[in-house]
């Protein structure tokens, strides 16, 4: 009995470590795809496609296309409402524009310290908005980049399957569907890029204006940390200042949140609300693409078209099993 146990113990790792055949890889990959384990599915199907066995490469590629399309979709789940994002960026830009319009002459000409400090506080609040928008844009760009890479790879996989098996009409159809998704995503990305460029421009202008204001405010009116305020906006510099203790210094700075006048806060809120409401086509905030988009894998094509034309999903995965 002991001997049997010992032999089993010795053989078990060997059996576990035994390399999978291309067929097993394919089947396991397909099971993982069905179970929603996209990462494992991708690894296994990729290995199956790399096996060099012609009868496995094509179906593995086809399903790999599905895996990567799904991965792109999963990635985009984190992006939030697209229209809301565009509106927020537009609102922040509008606030900044208003501040620049009204406070720039003060920064250029005024010597009234109180006026200068008020202008500085408004500029700072506008910049906070812009920064939030900038961060949201950056995050969204990252998500879009990742999703686009996955979808482009998905198109490549479907096209490759089609190239290897020209009679595989499903692969060609799916490639077209994913390409349409990519096109749509690129369109949104382009809009976001324009908005981001505006945000960046306003940030730069505000920075310049606040620099001038800081120069005019007497030193004794400035508190510790005010000189570093501009640097705080820079992501790079943020990372380089681990010694900063935001909790301590933030409270001491001119323009800290608790020092914004109630009037200013009210004005900002009103302006932002107004701008956001103006962006929507019918006065209602627009939703993102997610809410209207069917799940391509969840609803495989039956008649070749989804209602809504553009929002078609790729055809269902190939469930061939050996």
């Amino acid at each position: 009995m002991i001997r049997l146990f010992a032999i089993s113990a010795l053989l078990a790792p060997a059996l576990i470590a035994a390399p999978q055949t291309p067929r097993e890889l394919y089947n396991n990959g397909l099971n993982k795809l069905r179970a929603g384990d996209l990462k494992e599915a991708e690894t296994m199907l990729r290995d199956a496609a790399n096996s060099g066995q012609d009868h496995i490469i094509t179906p593995a590629l086809y399903n790999l296309g599905h895996v990567r399309f799904s991965q792109g979709k999963e990635t985009l789940k984190g992006e939030g409402n697209r229209q809301q994002m565009l509106d927020s960026a537009a609102a922040a830009t509008a606030v900044a524009e208003e501040v620049l319009r009204s406070k720039k002459p003060i920064a250029e000409l005024s010597t009234n310290v109180q006026e200068l400090i008020e202008a500085y506080m408004e500029g700072r609040a506008a910049r906070k908005q812009l920064r939030a928008s900038h961060e949201a844009n950056t995050r969204t760009f990252d998500l879009l980049g990742t999703a686009l890479a996955k979808w482009r790879r998905s198109v490549g996989d479907f096209r490759s399957a089609c190239e290897l098996e020209p009679s595989d009409a499903d692969a060609a159809f799916n490639a077209d569907v994913v390409e349409r998704h990519i096109k749509e995503l690129l369109k949104f990305k382009e809009e976001l890029e324009q908005q981001a460029a505006e945000v960046e421009q306003k940030r730069a202008e505000l920075k310049k204006m606040m620099g001038k204001l800081r120069g005019k405010i007497p030193d004794e009116m400035m508190q510790e940390g005010d000189g570093e305020e501009e640097d705080e906006d820079s992501d790079e510099e943020k990372g380089k200042k681990p010694k900063d203790k935001p909790g301590q210094k933030q409270e001491q700075r001119i323009g800290g949140e608790r020092e914004i006048s109630p009037e200013m806060g009210k004005w900002l809120k009103e302006t932002m609300k107004q701008r956001t409401m103006n962006v929507g086509p019918d006065g209602q905030p627009n939703g993102g693409g997610d809410s209207n988009e069917p799940d391509p894998l969840g609803q495989p094509r039956r008649d070749g078209r989804f209602p809504g034309g553009q929002q078609q999903a790729p055809k269902g995965k190939k469930g061939k099993d050996w």
């Binding site: 496609a49 490549g156 490759s160």
Partner: peptide
């Protein structure tokens, strides 16, 4: 490439 195709994934 992963596959012998024009759009094969570059490994």
């Amino acid at each position: 490439r992963l596959t012998p195709t024009r759009e094969g994934e570059e490994l």
